[in-house]
Amino acid sequence: MLNSAPIFKKEVGSYFLSPMAYVVITIFLVLSGYFFYSSVAYYSLISMQAMQNPYMVSGLNLTEDLISPVFANLGIIAMLIIPMLTMRLFSEDKKSGAIELLFTYPLKDLDILMGKFFAASVVYLTPIAITLVYIAFLRSMTQLALGPILAGYLGLVLMGEAFIALGILISSTTENQIIAAIITFGVLLLLWVIGWASSFTGPTLGKILTEISLIKHFDTFSKGVIDIRDVIFYLSFTFYSLFLTCRVLESKRWRG
């Protein structure tokens, strides 16, 4: 039985008691709002052109030309925002020394870890949930296929959890929050674009690089496709990062 609830409650509290959560959520919404607006504006522009040129109409597709780019942009914002969310999770306690008390309470390492993981998830998922307003707004104006949107959100959730897990892992290794944020961001960015290298490496390495690239797996979701391989990729990425974090927490005990 996990006993994560007190830690979860406390961590959510400290996100929302400090400006942290509000800043992250606001920035996320400002950026996503801008991207959404420009996508809609662009789509309406080409629709307008299509009206004058009936030949273009067949090429127009709401999911492909509007929804897909919006989700791709949301994914990038998530990559920018999540390191800011996760940087403090263990670093702060390590620096202040609060971790000493935390480790002497009747809690398992996993209780502490999952409490913090879910707390960061809540702060990440809040602006994601708010973006549903955009979809509702779009739906009030036009016919919308809900399947691809569902796939897009599933992708955002799964990928976000994977990012958070990685962020926690890195936060558990340092007591400096800035270092935690920069390393997390660096690793995410590298994993994001590493597939690009496949164009000039050999076929085997190229295939491997594409498969570990974060963008490749998110692309399918943002195009409205749920591929079980991508789901498994993100789930195992999350699981493995959390597993390593547990090991890091454990190691601090025998290293003294």
């Binding site: 609830a5 509290g13 400290s14 020394g97 609060a98 971790i99 000493e100 809690l107």
Partner: peptide, 25 residues
């Protein structure tokens, strides 16, 4: 346990903090 340098959560209120520890215990 009362550590030598008590590191408490500075952004919490005394009451909330004690409830938090109570729940953990």
């Amino acid at each position: 346990y009362l550590p030598e340098n008590v590191a408490l959560y500075m952004d919490m209120r005394v009451n909330d903090y004690l409830h938090f520890v109570g729940r953990i215990k």
